[in-house]
Design a protein around this nucleic acid. Structure first.
Length: 812
RNA sequence: GCGGACGUGGCGAAAUUGGUAGACGCGCCAGCCUUAGGAGCUGGUGGGGCAACCCGUCCCGGUUCGAGUCCGGGCGUUCGCACCA
C-alpha cells in the first residue's frame, strides 16, 4: 500500500519511462509537417551506428541540440527535430570484416541498439521521419542526386591515384593509412592509378567562399572552410621550352613580381610534358625518379621535407630576362595544384631556396627589404616578406613596391603574350568513387555502343546485392565486380549487353543531402516533397561537431547549390545557422578503449537518471568548448533536481509570493532565456541553481508562483522531471505546450545597490545606495564610511562615478 | 612551418561595453539531525597574517582613474592544415 501522507520522493527510475511512454502515446514529439505556421527545423548531425553503441560524445551533441529545439518550441515555434543513421561506409564495412560478420546483417542490429539507447535519452525526436542511408528507399535518392550531377555536367570520370596496399592487395581509404603504412599489416602504401568519378565542386569554389559571409555560422567553422577553399590571386605565366618547336611550360605563381629572379622551372614528376621535353641523356634518371615517386603513398609524399629532384636536360627561357633556365622535376611540386609546374625563385621562396641549395642552382635577389639594397646578400634564408619590399635587379620595375609590381609585371607579361592574371583555389574536385562494397552502387552503365549511360531514374534504386564475400581484393575494383550476375545488364538505351559501374559512392554523398530527406521521409515517391521543403528548409539551426567543419558541411552546401541551380530548391545554402559543439574528455584525458576510461551512457542513466545525466553533460563546461567529465560532479546536478522536485511537491498556494524571491525569479528567467538561446547551457543551469538556493534559503516553504516558472525553465534540460512537476502543479497538458515564462523588466532592478568604492583604483569598501543616487550623494555616503575615508589622504583630484557600479576616488 | 583556440582556487568552471575576480558545482571544514551514515539540512572555504592589512587571473612591459578583459613581446598547452607555389 502506498502511504499517501508520506512525501513523494524523486524517483527517476519510474518517472522517466512513464513519461517517455506518454510522449509516444500522445504524439507529443510530433509536429504537423504539412500545416506548420511557425516552422523551425532543428537539426543535429546524425550518427554512424557503431557496434560499440552510443558514445557519450553523441549524447552530449544530441542533448545540446535537443535543449535548443525544446526551447524554441517553448517560445512558440513548431519544431521539427528528426534523427537517423549514417549507416553506409567504410567504418561499418571494416568492423564487419574484423568481426567476420556481414554488414547487411550487422548494421540493422547496430541501428536497433542505437535506437534503444536514443529513446532512453529523452530527446524530442519525431521518429516518423527517421532515415537510414543504407536502406534502398533512402539510397535510391542518393543515386538520383548523382544522376542530377551527371545531367548538369558536373560529374566526370578521370584517372586518379588511390592508396594501395601491396600486401593486403586492396585500396585503402586515407584514414586507413598511418604514417605511410597500412594500418592493418604495416606495409608501405603505394599509389595506384584508377579511373574514378569526380564532382566538379571546384567550379563552385568562388560561390562557396563568398556565400560564407552571409551565414550565421561559428567563426571557426567558416574560417576552416575559407582555408580549405584556399583562394589565392596570382598569375599563370608561360615559359617557352628551348629546341622543341613550340612547347611551353605553364606555371602558376602568386609572386609574378619576382620573375626576374626565376632561375629554373620545376614540374611535378607526373606532369604530362615531362615525357616530351626530357633529353635522351637524362631519360633514364628521370624515369627512375618518377618510378620512385610513384612508389610513395599519397600521404608521406606530402610530409617529407627533404628536397629531391632530377634535371630533365631541357632548358626554358625566362620571358623577363631572356636568360635560359633549366627545367627540373621534383616531388615538392604537386600535380594537383595550379598547373603542376612552378617557376622557382630561390631568393624569395623557402622551398625553392632549399632546393637550389641542394642542387647548386643560382639564387638571385630581386626584392630588397627596407634596410637592404640590390647587392645585400640573401644570407642563409629566402627573403619572403612582401610587406615592405621593393624590387631590385628587375629592369624597368626597380624601385616598385611588391604590391604595385605584382599588377604591373603581370600586365607587362600579358601584353607580350606570356601570361595572364588568374585566381587559383586549393579546393579539388570531389572524388566520389570507392572501390568498396558497403555503399550505394554508382548508377551508371557502360555500353560498347552507347558509351557511358546513366541509369534511367525510373530504374532506381540500383540495389546493392547481398555478397557473401564482400572483401576488397587485388583487382583494384569493387567487390561488386566479382558478381557477374549483378553487373551484366542490357544497355538501357540500345538493349545490347552492357556492364554496370561496380564502384560505390562516397559516404559523404549520403550525408550531403539527408537534411532534405527528413521532412519528406514519409513520402516514398519523391526525394523531397516541394511543399514540405518550402515549409521546413533551409535548416534553421544545425548543431554538430567541428570535425565535419570542412568535408561534410562543404559537400552539403555544394549539393544544395547544384540542386538549386537545377531548379529543385529555392535556396542555395542549406544551413542558416550552424554551431559547433565541443568535445568531452574524462578526468583531463581523451577517452579511449585502450585507457579503459570510456563512459557508458547506459550505466550513468541507470544510476542517476536520464535527466541528471543530460543536465550534468550540459553543466560540466561551455557547450561550444566541451569539458571534463568527472564522476563526482553528477551528484551536484542530481541534488539540484531533488530540490526542484521537493520545492514543487511542498509548495504552497497560501498568501502571496515573496517580493525578493520574485525579483530574483525574473532576473533568472531573463538570464536562463538568454543563455539557453545562445547555447550557454552551463551558466543557464548555474542561474537556476542559484535561484533554487534563494527559493529554499532558511528552509522556507516556496510559493506556487515562485516554482511554476522554474519548472518551465528547467523543462528543456530535464524534460521528464519537468513534465512530472507540471502535472503535480495541476496541469493535464505537456509542459512543452505551456510556453516560456515572461519576465517583467520593471522587476529586474533593485531600488538600492551596493556601490563599489575604490581609492586610487583599489577596492576599499562598498556603500548601499539608491540606484538613482548622484555622484555627490555617493561621494558623501562613501566619505561617511570610516573604513573608506581613512584612505582618502591628501587632495581629492578626480572622482570617477559609474552609476550602479562604482565610485573611484583619485587622491594624492 | 602556416592558421585557430586557450592559459583564472585543490578540481570543473563564472565574470554585458575595461568597472566589487572566483558566480554555480565538486571536494574539503564546522555545526544540526540521526542508533548510524558514503543520506539530508545550515554555514564556511583564493593565498599570507593574531590583526590592521598585504598579495593574487602563465611571465615581462605598456595604455588607463581602473586591465582576467585592450596593445607589444615572451613562455606553455591544444586542435586543424601541412611542400598549395
Amino acid at each position: 500500500m502506498t502511504d499517501l501522507t508520506a512525501p513523494q520522493p524523486y524517483d527517476p527510475a519510474t518517472l522517466e519511462p512513464l513519461w517517455r511512454q506518454r510522449w509516444a502515446d500522445r504524439g507529443t514529439n510530433q509536429v504537423d509537417l504539412d500545416g506548420a505556421a511557425k516552422p523551425f527545423y532543428a537539426l543535429m548531425m546524425f550518427p554512424y551506428p557503431s557496434a560499440e553503441g552510443l558514445h557519450v560524445g553523441n549524447l552530449f551533441a544530441f542533448t545540446g541540440s535537443d535543449i535548443s529545439a525544446r526551447y524554441h518550441r517553448l517560445i512558440g515555434h513548431e519544431v521539427f527535430q528528426p534523427l537517423g543513421y549514417d549507416a553506409f561506409g567504410i567504418h561499418s564495412e571494416n568492423y564487419a570484416l574484423k568481426m567476420g560478420a556481414h554488414p547487411m546483417e550487422l548494421t540493422p542490429k547496430n541501428v536497433a541498439n542505437f535506437q534503444r539507447q536514443l529513446e532512453r535519452a529523452g530527446l524530442m525526436i519525431d521518429w516518423r521521419s527517421k532515415v537510414d542511408t543504407s536502406r534502398p528507399e533512402y539510397y535510391q535518392w542518393t543515386q538520383w542526386v548523382f544522376l542530377q550531377l551527371v545531367k548538369q555536367g558536373l560529374a566526370y570520370k578521370k584517372a586518379a591515384a588511390v592508396n594501395w596496399c601491396p600486401s593486403c592487395k586492396t585500396v585503402l581509404a586515407n584514414e586507413q593509412v598511418e604514417g605511410g603504412q597500412c594500418e592493418r599489416c604495416g606495409s608501405a602504401v603505394e599509389q595506384r592509378v584508377l579511373e574514378q568519378w569526380f564532382f566538379r565542386i571546384s567550379q563552385y569554389a568562388e560561390r562557396l567562399l563568398t556565400n560564407l559571409d552571409g551565414l550565421d555560422w561559428s567563426a571557426i567553422t567558416a574560417n576552416a572552410q575559407r582555408n580549405w577553399i584556399g583562394r589565392s590571386e596570382g598569375a599563370e605565366l608561360t615559359f617557352a621550352v628551348d629546341g622543341t618547336g613550340g612547347e611551353v611550360v605553364r606555371v602558376f605563381t602568386t609572386r609574378p613580381d619576382t620573375i626576374f629572379g626565376a632561375t629554373y622551372l620545376v614540374l611535378a614528376p607526373e606532369h604530362p610534358l615531362v615525357a616530351t621535353i626530357t633529353t635522351d641523356a637524362q631519360r633514364a634518371a628521370v624515369a627512375q625518379y618518377q618510378d620512385a615517386t610513384r612508389k610513395q603513398d599519397l600521404i608521406s609524399r606530402k610530409s617529407t621535407r627533404e628536397k629531391t629532384g632530377v634535371f630533365t636536360g631541357a632548358m626554358a627561357v625566362n620571358p623577363a630576362t631572356g636568360a635560359p633556365i633549366p627545367i627540373w622535376i621534383a616531388d615538392y611540386v604537386l600535380m594537383e595544384y595550379g598547373t603542376g609546374a612552378i617557376m622557382a625563385v630561390p631568393g624569395h621562396d623557402e622551398r625553392d631556396f632549399e632546393f637550389a641549395q641542394v642542387f647548386g642552382l643560382p639564387i638571385v635577389r630581386v626584392v630588397a627589404g627596407p634596410t637592404d639594397d640590390a647587392d645585400t646578400p640573401l644570407g642563409d634564408v629566402a627573403y619572403t616578406d612582401d610587406a615592405g619590399g621593393r624590387l631590385v635587379n628587375s629592369g624597368a620595375f626597380d624601385g616598385l613596391s611588391v604590391t604595385d609590381a605584382k599588377a604591373k609585371v603581370t600586365a607587362w607579361l600579358a601584353s607580350h603574350g606570356h601570361g595572364t592574371a588568374v585566381v587559383n583555389f586549393r579546393l579539388h574536385d570531389w572524388c566520389i568513387s570507392r572501390q568498396r562494397y558497403w555503399g550505394p552502387p554508382i548508377p551508371i552503365i557502360y555500353c560498347d555502343a552507347c558509351g557511358t549511360v546513366p541509369v534511367p531514374e525510373s530504374q532506381l534504386p540500383v540495389e546493392l546485392p547481398y555478397l557473401a564475400d564482400f572483401k576488397p581484393d587485388d583487382s583494384g575494383v569493387s567487390p561488386l565486380a566479382r558478381n557477374e550476375a549483378w553487373y551484366r545488364v542490357p544497355c538501357p538505351t540500345c538493349g545490347a549487353p552492357a556492364r554496370r559501374e561496380t564502384d560505390v559512392s562516397d559516404t559523404f554523398l549520403d550525408s550531403a543531402w539527408y537534411f532534405l530527406r527528413y521532412p519528406s521521409a514519409t513520402h516514398a515517391e519523391v526525394p523531397f516533397d516541394p511543399a514540405r521543403t518550402r515549409t521546413w528548409l533551409p535548416v534553421d539551426s544545425y548543431i554538430g561537431g567541428n570535425e565535419h567543419a570542412v568535408l561534410h558541411l562543404l559537400y552539403s552546401r555544394f549539393i544544395t547549390m547544384v540542386l538549386h541551380d537545377a531548379g529543385f530548391l529555392d535556396f542555395d545554402e542549406p544551413f542558416t545557422r550552424f554551431r559547433a559543439h565541443g568535445m568531452i574528455i574524462r578526468d583531463g584525458a581523451k577517452m579511449s578503449k585502450s585507457k579503459g576510461n570510456v563512459i557508458n551512457p547506459d550505466q550513468y542513466m541507470e544510476q542517476w537518471g536520464t535527466d541528471a545525466f543530460r543536465m550534468y553533460l550540459m553543466f560540466l563546461g561551455p557547450y561550444e568548448e566541451g569539458g571534463d567529465f568527472r564522476d563526482q560532479g553528477i551528484s551536484g546536478v542530481r541534488r539540484f533536481l531533488e530540490r526542484v522536485w521537493a520545492s514543487v511537491r511542498d509548495c504552497t498556494t497560501e498568501g502571496a509570493a515573496d517580493a525578493a524571491v520574485v525579483r530574483q525569479l525574473h532576473r533568472t528567467i531573463k538570464k536562463v532565456g538568454h543563455d539557453t538561446a545562445t547555447l550557454g547551457y552551463n551558466t543557464a543551469i548555474a542561474a537556476m541553481m542559484e535561484y533554487v538556493n534563494h527559493l529554499r534559503r532558511g528552509e522556507r516553504t516556496p510559493h506556487r508562483d515562485e516554482v511554476l516558472p522554474l519548472v518551465q525553465m528547467v523543462a528543456p534540460y530535464a524534460p521528464h522531471l519537468a513534465e512530472a512537476c507540471w502535472e503535480m502543479l495541476g496541469h493535464v497538458d505537456s509542459v512543452f505546450d505551456g510556453g516560456w515564462p515572461p519576465f517583467d523588466p520593471a522587476l529586474l532592478v533593485d531600488d538600492a545597490v551596493d556601490l563599489a568604492v575604490q581609492v586610487n583604483g583599489k577596492l576599499r569598501g562598498t556603500v548601499r545606495v539608491a540606484v538613482t543616487v548622484t555622484q555627490e550623494e555617493a561621494l558623501a555616503a562613501a566619505m561617511a564610511e570610516p573604513g573608506i575615508a581613512k584612505f582618502v589622504t591628501g587632495e581629492l583630484r578626480k572622482v570617477v562615478f559609474v552609476p550602479k557600479r562604482l565610485l573611484n576616488l583619485v587622491v594624492g
